[in-house]
Design a protein around this nucleic acid. Structure first.
Lengths: 212, 212
DNA sequence: TTATAAATACCAACTGGTTGGTATTGATGT
DNA sequence: ACATCAATACCAACCAGTTGGTATTTATAA
């Protein structure tokens, strides 16, 4: 098991392993050895790069946030000129991701914060920060769409951004409980329908409604 | 430290302790000793009543479901004659519960299933079953309201029931992340608004809108 | 009733294995 | 040569679960 020394790659392998194993087993149930095995390195390497398990958790959460930021920042719906289309495009994009292995499409931050909110303050804060940043990006499009289509509506764009993430996080819980994304997809359908009531229905059929 | 032997009470103390400690720390991070300490009994008593930690978890989940069933079954909104009022009354009731200690108003089942879905099949199934039962009760009122106010709508009552729980579960995650139920309350406000678009706005002002 | 046997409820101490983390040694790149 | 990086060996604390026994309750029968 001799690989050439490559600090950056070893660190990255540990972060990727943490991301995958924690999403599958949860933070507390994941041991340092689990992560080392998944990453193909030993404990010596682990504690060279991270001073504790919690520090690794924080780093993994930060990396997950950066990865999500890049993923959604590059997603095709961002090219829509109408902000309402971008908001609905985001929901459709997320619905299209609900395929394959459950651990691959669920959110590391939501999973983790639920376990550690009362026991690991720094890790909790990292999760909160990552989720809030994602929502802030989303909120910009919602705000722009609101200005255009519902400037006098009583709801705030930010609260809608949080609501969208709330539905997503809840949807992941049911995907896990049912071992099946069907219910989650249906909930995103309801979310989409609600957003249309807030912002109005786009004219062209860029999106297809999915109800049920 | 001598209490009279009372099998039912000891068992009940263990279940209550499990409910509280697991909601605060998560299932995996909670040790059998944690639960015994919180319940004020020894490990001997624990393993007399439950053959394993997972069995206790399953029993705690089942008891939580029964407790919720009793709580919501006896809640005042059930007395409303109009099923639409009952559905909205449920949401308002849940919003009114978002006060005090976080661990006291969050859902043991949602918390647990997220951790164990891939590693503890029986516990996962118990969580799924408990949530589905609760939703089935809810769905009855939704279905009745649909018959009356939106009989030809394209959505199913069941999918709306799941959507309502999805929002609640997601709301709990943000209450934990933010250490604060504000965002959760706002999300229930959005949920309520959506339900009104599906079922129509009640005439009398039994409920007060909260938009934020 | 009451003595006694059997069953249940409970306890403190212990066990084998696991945990996060450390100390030491060796390999690698510059 | 030298600092960085990673492997091995190791540790004390902790884990779920067991043990062997005691206290209490319940069933039985005289």
């Amino acid at each position: 098991m001799r690989r050439p020394h490559n600090s950056a790659e070893t660190r990255s392998r540990l972060l990727d392993a943490a991301r995958d194993v924690i999403r599958a087993q949860g933070y507390a149930a994941t041991t340092v050895d689990d992560i080392c095995t998944a990453a193909g390195v030993t404990k010596g390497a682990f504690f060279h790069h991270f001073e504790s398990k919690e520090r690794l958790g924080i780093a993994a959460v930060e990396q997950f946030g950066a990865m999500a930021s890049a993923l959604f920042g590059a997603a095709p719906y961002n090219a829509y000129p109408d902000p309402r289309d971008r908001v609905l495009g985001y929901v459709d994009f997320r619905a299209s991701m609900l395929q394959g292995d459950i651990a691959q499409y669920t959110c590391l931050l939501g999973t983790t914060v639920q376990e550690v909110y009362a026991t690991h303050p720094d890790l909790r804060a990292a999760c909160d920060h990552g989720m809030s940043e994602h929502i802030a990006v989303l909120t910009r499009d919602i705000e722009a769409a609101k200005q255009r289509y519902a400037p006098d509506a009583p709801w705030s764009a930010e609260s809608v951004g949080y609501f969208m993430q709330t539905v997503l996080q809840g949807a992941f819980i049911f995907a896990k409980a049912k071992q099946n994304p069907e219910v989650a997809v249906a909930s995103l359908g309801h979310l989409r329908r609600y957003l249309v009531t807030l912002l109005g229905q786009p004219q062209d059929d860029k999106h297809k409604e999915q109800t049920r």
